[in-house]
Write a protein that binds this DNA or RNA. Sequence first.
DNA 1: AAGTTCACG
DNA 2: ACGTACGTGAACTTT
Length: 624
Amino acid sequence: MITYRHDVNGEIITVYVPETDADLREFMHWARNKPELALDTETTGLNIYADGYRLRTVQFGTAREAWVIHYELRGRFKEAADYVLKRCPRFYIHNAMFDWLVLDAYSEETLESLAPRTVDTKIKAILIDPRAPEEGGIGTALKPLSAYYIDPSAPDTQGDLTAVFNSMGLTKENGFARIDLRHPTYNLYAGLDVIYTFRLNTCLDAEHVRLGVRPALLAYEHEIAFMCAYMQRAGLVVDLDYVDELRPVLRQEEEKFAALAAAWGVSSVNSGAQVAEALQAMGETLTERTKKGALKVDKDVLLPLADLDRDWERIGARDPNPLAEAVLRAKRAGKWVTSYVDKFADNHDAAGRIHPTLNPLQARTGRMSISGDFAAQTLPGSDWMIRRAIVADEPSHIIGRIDFQAIEMRVLAALADVRRMKAGFCDPNPDPSVYPEGFDIHMYTARLIKGPGATKAHRKLFKGAGFGKVYGGGIKTIAKQTGASEAEISRAVAEYDRAFPEIKRASSKWQREARARGCVTVTPTGRILPLDRHRMYAVVNYKCQSTARDVLGQAMINMRDADLLQFMKLPIHDEIVFSAPKADAKDIAHEFEKCMRMDLFGVPITADADLGGYSWGSLYGAKV
DNA sequence: AAGTTCACG
DNA sequence: ACGTACGTGAACTTT
């Protein structure tokens, strides 16, 4: 047996690395009646479903002892780890989703068996402070948390390992796969990680009690994490034939317009400086500047020069600048091919599925994000072309989605108790001659302020003003976003404030309460959200965005209870994308709707299903 | 690594 | 006293 000793906050801890059958028996004996263990894995990398991926070690630990089991050696090593994985009643894991999915794919354990026995220390930490160190928080990685709660001299096990890799001619990317399984630093740090995780759990519990973090919130987040892991494991099917057809089309488009741009001396359409210089040489005047003072040449600047509106339709206001249009088209085709099409082609697993990395508590407000192989939240929605590449689970399935209607406005009405907004949302029978497609809060607002003669233009104006309120925007920004004049917006905002005076009052009250608590606001689910001192006005947005996230979270819990998890593919802020057998899709969609409909402090939360065809693109206009 | 741009809710 | 658009992920160029 190899053993390492290390100082953790003045105490000597031991890391055991079994080598023989006798060592492994000792390990199993040690683990035998332990009611709880910290758990971690070391693997070849982060792309769990990539070809040749390996689970290298599984570590178990308490406050003073850790065991590093060389799972990669298989045989008795694997058996010993599997034995303890199966028997231990409770595991503490930092960022459990990753280890769940690794163990699900490469050990005898399953996600379904591990999740109910897991306490995730990262979730606990996020419920105390979700911020990264750069944002003024403690951070949510094991290293900053260990340094803060346990031992200021805790080693940066990830960072130090990178240095070890570099000294051996390896890199951060290939080091975890190639380092010798017996390397001392690798094993010591593998052991330290579980010891820190075990100790961290105790510290975080005390902090939860001190701050009053509700155990129900913690349990709920573990449920959500399980559901996200389930969706990540399932992945989505890529239509690889379509991808192969689409790539050359987009590449040709990119090259065609890049060549046009080159005629004006722009060798790279992604170089803002080159584009700005060439446009000025053509006689265009550029006025907008970036934060650092460079001339701005983004889409908002280029579209008007190309005489195109935001939907890329001809305006007819001027002679289109051909360079502006070429740059726009080349950049769009280039982005679509590299950010989407190539990623679909490169990142699918052996079964042709692509696995999004779901981050259930990513944003400061608790919102989820999707990153990695398939950043599914940010696929272009203006065109079906990209989404057409993602298809239903089976040929007999269809893709559908259920989305909340105006969720953030409803949450605002509920939390700020906006009387007339609530009255609108609560109206059981909105006049179909006014609202042919169901109640619409922005039209309702326009009619409230302008009377029954309110037009679509009024609706657009007050929609802008409404979002301005939720986001905390000023007159200037709202004007720029909506395209209306500042005078027009300033009048609209004043009218809006008169119609819904509770919003301003709530903002002041929430800011006052947040200051009294040390610049944090607490949401109805008990989430503690830190605010930036110089942006306290953002409290309205934080509370609404965060509560909307938890409305989706509650809906997700309802879905699991209704046995709908098997159909769920993606959570996208205010919608759930699903794949279901075509024959039952209508009924299933109806069940989803029921799960999403609820009451929030007297405001009805409503949801509508949209049934598509075989591809996700069908919901955006694709024929298939 | 920072800055800019573009994709989404 | 006044006013501040919110939250993400990813690619590419420049430094």
